[in-house]
């Protein structure tokens, strides 16, 4: 290796580079403007205009909206009912609807009371509660009392009816496999006919109302 400091002339005395002041080529500016225009067009088509809820391949909120599942319908009511059920009923009947023998709560799963043709006696039962013996799936339950859960739900009469309808829909759908929605109007009519009653129902009374 060459250890000697070799100071060549261009190393010690050198001029710094300069920049010529030639004009800018126009084609570059034209190209930039064209590309900018195309980019803006592209952004307009696919960019979703800064919407945080728009992800490719969707291009706008309206586009995302086109693929939203239909709300209304039984699925929504079932979802609502599921929440209300776990807040108000699951304490005794359990989330899975298997009941709780220790407290004298009969099961709901496949119960003939749940699978009745219309929801009339279920709405009555939920509204005013039940006392006395009741036979579920061939077994007699006699040690518990169901409170008037429906009456004690918060809200106006219309809201109560709507909530009871959701619970009934969910219970019948989930535990009775009956995919028929119980309408709030139907519940309101039933509740209007029993609105002055304060005592719990008994099983016989319910069977009389809807055999």
């Amino acid at each position: 290796m060459n250890a000697d400091p070799k100071k060549s002339s261009d190393v010690t005395n050198e001029a710094e580079p300069t920049a010529a002041m030639t004009a800018m080529p126009v084609w570059l500016v034209a190209l930039m403007v064209t590309l900018l225009f195309l980019s803006a067009w592209y952004f307009d088509l696919y960019g979703g205009w800064f919407e945080p809820k728009v992800f490719s391949p969707y291009v706008s909120v309206a586009d995302v909206q086109r693929f939203q599942p239909k709300t209304g319908g039984i699925a929504e009511t079932v979802a609502r009912g599921k929440k209300l059920f776990s807040d108000n009923c699951a304490v005794c009947h359990m989330e899975t609807g298997v009941g709780n023998p220790a407290n004298g709560c009969p099961p709901l799963v496949d119960s003939e009371w749940v699978k009745s043709p219309t929801a009339t006696r279920m709405v009555m039962l939920i509204s005013k509660g039940l006392s006395g013996p009741i036979t579920v799936n061939g077994k007699v339950w006699n040690s518990g009392v169901m409170l008037a859960v429906g009456d004690s739900l918060p809200g106006s009469e219309a809201e109560k009816a709507e909530k009871i309808a959701a619970i009934a829909t969910y219970v019948r759908f989930q535990f009775g496999k009956i995919a028929v929605e119980t309408k709030p109007a139907q519940v309101e009519a039933i509740r209007a006919s029993i609105k002055d009653r304060t005592a719990n129902f008994t099983a016989e009374e319910l069977l009389k109302a809807e055999p």
Partner: peptide
């Protein structure tokens, strides 16, 4: 040689 050119570099 001089840099060709000042304006292009600016661009």
């Amino acid at each position: 040689r001089p840099l060709q050119s000042h304006y292009l570099a600016l661009f």
